[in-house]
Design a binder for these strands. Sequence first.
DNA 1: TCTTTAATGAGAATGATACACAATCAATTC
DNA 2: GAATTGATTGTGTATCATTCTCATTAAAGA
Lengths: 151, 151
Amino acid sequence: MALYTATSLKSELNERGWRLTPQRETILQVFQNLPKAKHLSAEELYHLLQGEGENISLSTIYRTLKLMARMGILRELELAEGHKHYELNQPYPHHHHHLICVRCNKTIEFKNDSILKTGTKTAQKEGYHLLDCQLTIHAVCPTCQRALLPI
Amino acid sequence: MALYTATSLKSELNERGWRLTPQRETILQVFQNLPKAKHLSAEELYHLLQGEGENISLSTIYRTLKLMARMGILRELELAEGHKHYELNQPYPHHHHHLICVRCNKTIEFKNDSILKTGTKTAQKEGYHLLDCQLTIHAVCPTCQRALLPI
DNA sequence: TCTTTAATGAGAATGATACACAATCAATTC
DNA sequence: GAATTGATTGTGTATCATTCTCATTAAAGA
Ligand SMILES: [Mn+2]
Ligand SMILES: [Mn+2]
Ligand SMILES: [Zn+2]
Ligand SMILES: [Zn+2]
């Protein structure tokens, strides 16, 4: 949960015998320039890059997203749409959580400082190295409550 | 997030024009009798039932798990294993959260009363009807830290 | 008991993600 | 700064969790 530059990403990769590639740098940049509250799926990232003339294969996208999530650079979100979404894993005070309508998938971000503290303390107590900590609230939004639709 | 019996499940289903079937009743019972900290995937539930001589089709398992999660009877967990897991959605004081090692998938349950309060308050503030609220901590367990394995 | 229509079971379809492997190229060594 | 090494990429293919289709069955209510 730290802020990354191309340089710091490179040193962290090299420390483990891995490499900074143009593809990895490009993908990190995309997430760094993403508007607030915007989340990307693998497919969305792929098409966004295509639109910018960056031809990074879908395989590499999937591999890079997983790698960066495991490094703690990105967070992997389950927004109830059948595929994962990713966003930068930012430290306090940008760290936030998600309230999701299970029917229409509308998502609201919210902050709560004590949750990150709880997560940090819990991981530490068990000797775990913290990567990410997210409160996910599954609920039904006002619109969908009114709609009276089947589940 | 309430405790369900076959009877209360039946009335809640019937209210919406739906039906209580033997399959649904059986599946609810399985979750009610599950040991503490035990989570089931669709496939695991299917085989558990097969072992008990209950021949409920995999299609019905999937449909029922989704239905009960949307009703707030079960909670859907992403335990980083490539498929969803389910457990009873129990109210305070059984409500709990998960600390997950992203490498070996070892999962530890922990409790924290203030999180449920935060979730309830947040949903209420936005006018959402709360179904479930789970803090998920992604981390690396002590064993996997020592292993020095690639991500 | 009869009617309505939700639910089931079996199999096929879908789609997100992982994999295999030859070609490429980032980092290190000489 | 060329050679070396093995991590990474791209393409195509495979996998497997989940959903869909549709004929059949059976809850619920009258
Ligand atoms: Mn977010
Ligand atoms: Mn649990
Ligand atoms: Zn909604
Ligand atoms: Zn582990």
